[in-house]
Simulated scan of single mutants.
Amino acid sequence: MTLPEASVQLYTLAEAFTADMHRSLDRLAAAGLTNVEAFDFVRRAPELRAALDASGLASPTGHAPLLSDELWTPDGSIPTPAPEAVFEAAATVGMRTVIDPFVDPQRWLTEAGVADIADRLNAAGDLAASYGLTVGYHNHAQEFIADFDGVSAYERFVALTDDRVALELDLFWARTGGQDVPALVERLGSRLLAVHVKDGIVPTANPWAPGAPAFGSDSLDQRHAGTGEVPLDAALRAAPALAYAVIEYDNAPGDVFTDIAASLAFLRDGGFVR
């Protein structure tokens, strides 16, 4: 089995990255990373590509909304660009796969809603192919609230999407959704392109369940990979064809570069990445 490459979701260091893109990327390269996963790249694609090239980094995957008119984040919503603009920017940056990072929880509660999400992502995949790209989806925990005939909304979605649609499983959020994460990883099999390596104390209730209180990322008790409650070891060993192990914190516990280095050490010391 070929080991995946390590990467880091740039949302993790959003504040530092916004303040000084070049220095942030240089620090990631100095830590030994060769890949990052871009976010909010459409408005700054040429600038980002130049900075990546200067630091010797690549962004083979990136997050951008493909399925929503407005993208929710725990720290505020951002408008959704046209898919053509997303794919043009992704090609400029040098990506291979554009991953939708979030779909509103209400859309996951019905079979019709799940089918619509799958249909839209399949159609986005058709358009992406004309740019030499593929598409994918990144979960949180709302995809695991509803189930239909004993199958979670998430796995129903997987069954309805084309095989060419990639999956990026956020291991922390899948566990928050009540999943046996290693078993889920095994069931997803070769569809699983990437995982988000994220650890911490798992919330006791799904923050996107109907009636849940307002949620913000600053409420999360996230910790260095291997020091929380998410079974990262078993999940990573269960993945048969993983390409990227992407470090991410929604709420980094300390200095963000130290936190990234700690999770990278977990991946390297455990023999989970090349």
Rank of each mutant, 00 (worst) to 15 (best):
F148D: 01
I117V: 10
Y131W: 13
A146K: 02
E84W: 08
V151A: 12
L167C: 08
A123V: 03
L169T: 06
Y131P: 05
F157S: 00
D104Y: 05
L109F: 13
I145P: 02
Y131A: 06
A91G: 12
Y131S: 07
I78K: 15
V98T: 03
N139R: 10
T176F: 01
G150T: 02
A166G: 09
P105K: 11
L109M: 15
A183V: 07
A166M: 04
V165R: 06
G150S: 06
V158I: 13
I117N: 11
P182C: 07
A123R: 13
I99H: 02
E111T: 12
A123Q: 12
E186G: 10
A128M: 06
V165P: 00
P182L: 05
D116P: 04
F148G: 09
I78Q: 14
R175M: 14
V151Y: 08
D100E: 11
A183N: 11
L171A: 04
R96K: 15
G178T: 03
N122P: 02
E155G: 08
V158M: 06
T176N: 01
F102Q: 14
V158G: 01
D116S: 14
P101T: 04
V86S: 02
V114N: 04
L121A: 08
A183G: 13
I99E: 06
Y137N: 00
F148H: 12
A128S: 06
L121H: 01
N139L: 05
G136D: 00
Q179T: 11
G113N: 07
P105T: 08
T92Q: 13
G94C: 05
D147C: 12
F157C: 00
R164Q: 09
L184G: 07
D126N: 14
V181K: 12
P182W: 05
V165E: 00
R107D: 14
S130W: 10
I117L: 10
D119R: 15
A112H: 13
T134N: 14
D100Q: 04
G136P: 05
F102L: 14
D147K: 14
A124P: 07
A124T: 07
D147L: 09
A82P: 02
D75M: 13
L121W: 03
R187L: 09
A153N: 08
Y154L: 10
Q142T: 05
N139W: 01
D104I: 08
G132S: 09
V98G: 10
A123Y: 02
A89P: 06
V114H: 06
F157D: 00
L133R: 00
V93D: 03
R120M: 05
G150C: 05
I99R: 00
P182E: 00
A141W: 02
F144A: 08
P105I: 04
A115K: 11
T97K: 04
H138N: 10
N139P: 06
H140E: 01
L171V: 06
V151M: 12
F144K: 02
T97M: 03
T110L: 11
A153H: 09
E84Q: 15
V185N: 07
D104S: 14
W108S: 05
G136C: 01
S152Y: 04
L167H: 04
D119N: 11
